[in-house]
């Protein structure tokens, strides 16, 4: 993924409930992929991390995949 996924799909607000989108940005262990790998702009990467963390808190996404 070289281009910013969110601006390409015209997503202005990253929702924590959109787990299908958020799962794309997790690696095999459930860790958030780095800015370098995702190719997302800094602004969206910050939104993305907080959305993933909110989803984790409500059990929508795992903290760790064993």
């Amino acid at each position: 993924m070289k281009q910013d996924y969110f601006s390409a799909n015209n997503i202005k607000y990253i929702d924590y409930k959109d787990t299908d989108i958020l799962k794309r940005f997790l690696n095999g262990n459930g860790k958030i992929m780095s800015h370098k790998r995702t190719g997302v702009t800094s602004k969206n990467q910050r939104q993305l991390t907080s959305a993933i963390k909110h989803a984790r808190f409500l059990g929508l996404l795992p903290f760790v995949v064993k």
Binding site: N9, I11, Y13, D15, Y16, K17, D18, I21, H54, G59
Partner: peptide, 19 residues
């Protein structure tokens, strides 16, 4: 069990289905 209160925007933010 748990709840989360966040600030958000008025517009619909879920976009998955559309794409």
């Amino acid at each position: 069990i748990r709840f989360l209160i966040i600030k958000t925007v008025k517009e619909n933010t879920i976009a998955t289905k559309r794409f």
